[in-house]
């Protein structure tokens, strides 16, 4: 078409865009099942970025991430089991858009084992800001990847379940589904018991710690504060670390 060899060679400098370019621009999404019903999940080339419940997914994603969203035909490997168990097992998360404190908070939440709960103050201490209990609440309310970072396992120190991104009812369902005995916790809270100690081991734990659940009734002692347990001669459990929070 071009008689001029220079023009033909210039036209030959045009190339095809590389196949991976779109993944650096757009996120993919899919609807998947979870213990609390269907969820919409979006991910980038770096990992899962957003888990949403209910209507308004695309609008919420757009205002939060400002990135195009394209439907995928299958979820990333490991997503569905991770939503079911709260264990990532190698599933990558993309938390790039978050601030340092929020990322530290989410990392602290990941340390709570399935079937157990920890107070907000404990998360604040592990995130490196022992006094920032309210800020932890705010950070968890904006957790972009609930279930994958199991913020439903963070509860109030007075025994109430507290708020949740997907609403308190979903929090209750998730905790019951993973075997937390909410009735027992509630009973203890009514008696103002927030720590359980064993007089055979001399150790004091959070009530949902697997060490606390093994204590037989005859050897179990309840305490309202960690200070009281310490005065009575108990040392904080090295597994659930009740000492890791501001008194």
């Amino acid at each position: 078409m071009n008689d001029d060899p220079l023009l033909a060679r210039l036209a030959g400098l045009a190339v095809e865009a590389p196949a991976g370019l779109l993944d650096r621009i757009a996120a993919r999404w899919i609807a998947v099942p979870s213990p609390i019903g269907e969820l919409s999940v979006a991910w980038t080339a770096r990992g899962v970025a957003y888990v949403h419940e209910g209507d308004g997914f695309t609008g919420a994603f757009r205002s939060r991430f400002g990135r195009p969203l394209m439907p995928a035909t299958r979820p990333p490997a490991g997503l569905v089991p991770a939503l079911r168990t709260g264990r990532l097992s190698g599933l990558a998360l993309d938390l790039e858009e978050l601030g340092d404190f929020q990322r530290d908070v989410l990392r602290a939440v990941q340390a709570i084992p399935r079937g157990e709960v920890r107070p907000y103050a404990w998360i604040a201490a592990r995130a490196g800001r022992p006094g920032a209990v309210r800020a932890v609440g705010t950070a968890l309310a904006r957790n972009p990847v609930p279930l994958l970072v199991p913020c439903h396992r963070v509860t109030r120190s007075d025994g109430a379940l507290g708020e949740y991104v997907f609403g308190p009812a979903a929090k209750q369902r998730l905790l019951l589904a993973e075997g937390v005995d909410l009735g027992r916790l509630d009973g203890l809270a009514r008696e103002r018991v927030f720590y359980l100690a064993s007089d055979t081991t001399g150790v004091v734990c959070f009530p949902t710690c697997h060490n606390a659940r093994r204590i037989t009734p005859a050897h179990r002692h309840g305490f309202r504060t960690l200070g009281a347990a310490r005065t009575a001669g108990y040392r904080p459990c090295r597994t659930c670390r009740p000492d890791l929070q501001a008194a």
Binding site: A26, R62, P68
Partner: peptide, 19 residues
């Protein structure tokens, strides 16, 4: 639809933008 429109936009113009 903004997202479907973007897919179309990208498909048509990716080579010229990248080149």
């Amino acid at each position: 639809d903004l997202d479907e429109g973007f897919a179309e936009l990208y498909g048509v113009h990716r080579d010229v933008v990248f080149s």
